[in-house]
Nucleic acid binder design. Sequence first.
DNA 1: TTGTAGGCGTTATCAT
DNA 2: ATGATAACGCCTACAA
Lengths: 324, 324
Amino acid sequence: MAVTIKDIAERVGVSVTTISRVLNNRGYLSDKLKKKVQGAMEELNYQPNELARSLSRKKSNVIGLIVPDISHPFFGQLTKHIEYYAYKHGYKLMLCNSLLNKKKEKEYIELLRASQVDGIIMGSHTMKVEDYMAIKLPLVTLDRRISDAIPYVSSDNYKGGALATKLLIRKRCRKIAYLSGSLQLNLLAKQRHDAFMEQVGRQSVDYVVRQTDLNGFKYKEYEALVRELFDEHPDIDGVFASSDLLALQVVRESRRRGKSIPGDLKVIGYDGIQNGGAEELTTIEQPIQEMGKLAVLRLLQQMAGEETPLETILPVRLLERGTT
Amino acid sequence: MAVTIKDIAERVGVSVTTISRVLNNRGYLSDKLKKKVQGAMEELNYQPNELARSLSRKKSNVIGLIVPDISHPFFGQLTKHIEYYAYKHGYKLMLCNSLLNKKKEKEYIELLRASQVDGIIMGSHTMKVEDYMAIKLPLVTLDRRISDAIPYVSSDNYKGGALATKLLIRKRCRKIAYLSGSLQLNLLAKQRHDAFMEQVGRQSVDYVVRQTDLNGFKYKEYEALVRELFDEHPDIDGVFASSDLLALQVVRESRRRGKSIPGDLKVIGYDGIQNGGAEELTTIEQPIQEMGKLAVLRLLQQMAGEETPLETILPVRLLERGTT
DNA sequence: TTGTAGGCGTTATCAT
DNA sequence: ATGATAACGCCTACAA
């Protein structure tokens, strides 16, 4: 059996209250006693039981994070930063991978609530709006506006879409494709598409739009999607892919067909992911670190009962590299 | 205040014991009562408090996972599968990102123990052997043998190293470089290097070895490393990189220098990461999914008090693709 | 089949 | 300054 404050108390010859006090640095304590207690703790190798503390305090210092797929570079990087800031503020992270599975996402939310997490960051959105509103826990949403009661953090999708499209047009593309993958079922990423439509409309450039369906993460399907696009529209000379992974697929397929990039075809991606072969892709970079930081911050604010802005939209940046 | 079993008990007019019983499906209960209790739970929207349960049962159903960097594709994918199997068996995941920071890793271990996790999967190894042996909690290590008391899961690094080197030699490379990055401070990945040395020695092929230092994750340093290699050894015609990320860097640098791959230079990576730009890389594929599955399995076995093999080594596979 | 009461390890409210 | 004691929400002998 592990050693508890009771053991320490007996050892030192005081009450558990006192031990608890030095543990939390609360109340008035003589330095002598403090030292003695700390000494005993070391000797007995005492470790506080966070479960008991959490139960008593009604605060677990745990944040739940729900993402669609932790192996997706965007979410991997986001998670890294979320963990960083959570840790910095004394919070642990419970990681939930929904795989865009509605049932699993719902189960996880109940699990998190049952586990008494202090708040949830949602990066996966497969449920109904009411379901989210029923969570009644400090909550921050990523890239999705659910209601005007749930704060969200996002980057400027409309701006990003406009920047990307404008670049392709400026580079004299005559027929541009907009490609979006299964991650894009959320509302806000749709603004990239809106911006695209507005730009091609305004400049009356020829265009095509292709979207994969939303069920799950079959990255393999990207391949078919891109192949199909090229088969049906061999005359495309510009592609705006709404994720870097998709853009990479476009680059690969072009290579296979002997199309040179950026000569015959210009490609721009989205996200600005690192560590994975997208380093030479022209892309719209999302400020992933800032997004993670602010997601945590907004959550902390809520947990502290402070006012939180509904909307936090961070700037994107065009990274012009080798594919345009 | 949230509703507790006590509320349910009062509502139904029975004791809390009974409620607890139906909650855990333990003991003898009349169906009538069961239904009534479940009804009341629904009505009051009762949710069990896992903290209280865990405290009482002395079992949290939480697994701690420590990785060096969740944004690294290898660990992202591994984590995805670990989460999958943990969830399947009723365990939640507490994610810890050590960033290969010794202090943070140690703090996290104490945090996990304080949080009463039922076991730990360690993918980060910066501490001393004694520190790990002192954990005294069900523990599984990834890619590292710490002592003969701590089970570990790995893939066949020696075989992988041999396969890779042999391939380059078979493809008639005359001067081969072995590159390894900061992730490789662990013992087992070193076997790739051992195998490399053995192979080049046996065939008396010319070779070079380059390793980055171990502090942290400066992926940017990969670039310098590779550039340096090429500057000093322009006559290299084969590279065995001990991670796909490194191999990608080699590919990029070669492109920059106008070296054609696989014509002038053959490159083979390691890991078999997906969802990025490594799809056309020749590589040694680690069975990431199986590794995740077995890590969880070995941990479950320990938690159940069963015998666990010290060593679990999974087979690797050569994926010959475009860069050799 | 159901209830009573003590315990899980800590914190918090009163006292003293 | 320090101590008793009742929570926190649930589980589990032991009784009945």
